[in-house]
Deep mutational scan, measured.
Amino acid sequence: MKVIFLKDVKGKGKKGEIKNVADGYANNFLFKQGLAIEATPANLKALE
């Protein structure tokens, strides 16, 4: 799953980066902790 990092995550990505991560990692950790959002077309456009 492609995500946009909202904060730096050690060993995974930095704020503003768009990366592929495992679905479970994104859903169970990144999204719940507010560290990333899904890289949907709307979210990508808002990032610009």
Rank of each mutant, 00 (worst) to 15 (best):
L6I: 11
G13K: 01
F29S: 06
K2H: 09
N43V: 10
A42K: 10
F29R: 07
K12P: 01
K45F: 10
G24V: 13
K14F: 13
E48G: 12
Q33P: 00
K32V: 13
V3G: 00
A42I: 08
D23T: 15
Y25L: 08
K12S: 13
A26G: 05
L35N: 03
D8V: 04
K45N: 09
V3C: 04
A22D: 14
A39E: 02
I4T: 01
K15L: 07
A36N: 01
E38A: 12
L47G: 05
N28A: 12
A42Q: 12
D8P: 04
F5V: 00
F31A: 02
K15P: 05
F31C: 04
A22V: 08
P41K: 09
K15D: 02
D8C: 08
K19G: 08
M1Y: 09
M1Q: 04
K45V: 09
E38Q: 09
F5H: 01
G34K: 10
I37P: 00
N43W: 04
D8G: 06
L44Y: 03
A22Q: 12
K14C: 13
D8E: 08
L6M: 08
Q33A: 12
G11D: 09
E17A: 05
T40S: 09
N28C: 12
N28V: 08
D8Y: 09
T40L: 05
I4C: 07
G34H: 09
K45A: 12
K32H: 07
K14E: 07
G11Y: 08
D23I: 15
I18Q: 05
Q33F: 15
A46Q: 11
P41I: 11
L6D: 00
A22P: 15
V9N: 01
E48F: 14
F5I: 02
E17S: 06
K7E: 10
F29K: 06
K10V: 12
N20A: 13
K10Q: 12
N43D: 04
L30Y: 04
A22N: 14
G16F: 10
I18V: 13
G34W: 07
M1P: 04
K12W: 15
I37M: 10
E17R: 02
L35M: 08
K12C: 15
A26W: 07
K19E: 04
L30N: 00
K12N: 09
D8W: 10
L35P: 01
I18R: 01
F5Y: 07
Q33D: 07
Q33N: 14
V3L: 04
E38H: 08
N27V: 15
I37E: 03
I37S: 03
K32R: 12
P41A: 12
F29M: 06
L35R: 02
Q33E: 11
L30P: 01
V21L: 05
N28G: 12
K12H: 15
K12V: 15
K10R: 12
K7Y: 12
V3F: 01
F31L: 12
G13N: 02
G34S: 06
N20P: 08
I18M: 07
A36Q: 01
N27H: 14
T40I: 05
V9Y: 04
G24Y: 14
A26R: 04
N27A: 13
F31G: 02
N20S: 13
K2L: 15
K7H: 10
F29N: 06
T40F: 03
D23S: 15
L44W: 04
Q33C: 15
L6R: 02
G11K: 06
G34F: 09
K15Q: 11
M1R: 09
D23N: 14
Q33H: 15
G11S: 06
I37T: 06
A26V: 05
A22R: 12
N28Q: 11
K2A: 11
V3K: 03
I4P: 00
K12T: 11
K10T: 10
K10Y: 14
T40A: 03
V9D: 00
A36M: 03
A22I: 09
L47V: 10
T40E: 03
N27P: 05
I37L: 09
I37C: 08
L6T: 06
V9R: 01
I18G: 01
G16C: 08
A26H: 03
N28E: 14
N20G: 07
T40D: 05
G11F: 08
G24I: 12
N28Y: 12
A36V: 07
K19Y: 08
T40V: 04
G24W: 15
L30I: 02
E38S: 08
A42H: 10
L6F: 04
K10E: 13
F29G: 04
A39V: 06
E17D: 11
A46Y: 12
G13A: 10
L47I: 12
K7D: 06
K10F: 14
A39F: 11
K7G: 06
V9P: 01
G13P: 01
L47Q: 09
G13W: 13
Y25Q: 04
I37D: 01
V3M: 02
L30M: 03
L6Y: 02
G24F: 13
L6Q: 02
F31M: 06
F29P: 02
G13V: 06
V9F: 05
A36C: 04
I4Y: 08
E17K: 03
A22S: 14
K10P: 15
E38Y: 06
K2E: 08
L6S: 02
N27Q: 14
N20Q: 13
K15T: 08
T40H: 05
G34T: 03
V21I: 09
A26S: 03
T40M: 03
Y25N: 04
E17V: 04
K2Y: 14
Q33V: 09
K32F: 08
K7Q: 12
A39G: 04
V9Q: 01
V21Y: 05
F31I: 13
P41R: 09
N27R: 15
L30Q: 00
G11M: 06
G11I: 01
L35D: 02
I4Q: 02
F5A: 00
L47W: 14
F29W: 11
K7R: 13
V3A: 02
K45R: 12
D8S: 11
A46T: 10
K15G: 03
A26E: 06
G13Q: 01
K14G: 06
G11P: 03
K32G: 07
K45T: 10
G16N: 07
A46C: 13
D23M: 15
K14Q: 09
G13L: 02
N43H: 07
N43R: 07
L47C: 09
E17C: 07
G24C: 13
Y25D: 05
D8Q: 04
K32L: 11
K32C: 10
A26K: 03
I37F: 04
G11N: 09
K12E: 13
V21A: 03
A42L: 09
L30A: 02
T40K: 04
N43A: 12
A39P: 02
D23Y: 15
K2W: 15
K19I: 11
N27S: 12
K2N: 10
I37Y: 05
F5L: 07
A22M: 10
K32W: 08
A26D: 06
Y25P: 06
K14P: 01
K45Q: 10
L47N: 07
A39N: 00
L6A: 02
P41G: 07
Y25H: 03
K19W: 08
V21T: 03
L47E: 05
E17I: 03
K2V: 13
G16H: 07
V3D: 00
K19N: 04
I37Q: 06
E17P: 00
E38D: 04
A39K: 00
E48S: 13
L44G: 04
P41H: 10
L35W: 11
G13H: 10
K2T: 13
V21P: 00
E48K: 12
D8H: 09
I18P: 01
I4F: 07
G16K: 02
K19F: 07
N27K: 15
Q33G: 07
A42W: 06
K45G: 09
L44I: 13
D8I: 03
D8F: 08
K45I: 11
Q33I: 09
V21E: 02
V21R: 01
I37W: 06
G13F: 14
I4M: 08
G13I: 04
K19H: 11
F31D: 01
K14D: 06
L35Q: 03
F29E: 07
L6C: 09
E48W: 12
N27I: 15
K14V: 09
F5D: 00
G16T: 00
A46D: 09
V3S: 01
P41Y: 11
K32T: 12
K7M: 12
F31N: 02
E38I: 11
F5M: 05
E48D: 11
K45S: 11
K15W: 05
E48N: 13
Y25T: 05
E48P: 09
A22Y: 09
L35F: 11
E48R: 13
Y25K: 05
A36P: 00
L30C: 04
K10W: 14
L35E: 02
G34N: 09
M1A: 05
A26Q: 05
E38G: 04
Y25I: 08
I18C: 09
A46G: 10
I18W: 02
L44H: 04
G24K: 12
M1K: 10
N43C: 08
N27G: 07
P41N: 08
A46E: 11
K19A: 11
A22L: 10
T40N: 08
I4L: 10
A26Y: 12
N20H: 14
A22F: 09
A36G: 04
G16P: 01
K2S: 11
L47R: 07
G24L: 12
A42E: 14
L44K: 06
N43P: 02
N27Y: 15
L44A: 07
P41T: 10
K10S: 08
D23V: 15
F5S: 00
V21W: 02
K32A: 12
N20R: 13
K10G: 08
A36D: 00
E17G: 02
A39Y: 12
G34A: 06
N20F: 15
L44V: 10
K19L: 11
G16A: 03
I18Y: 03
G34M: 08
P41F: 10
P41V: 12
K7C: 14
K12L: 15
E48A: 14
V3W: 01
I37H: 04
K32Y: 07
L30S: 00
A36H: 00
A42P: 06
T40C: 06
E48H: 13
L30F: 03
Q33L: 15
E38L: 11
L47P: 04
L6V: 08
A36S: 00
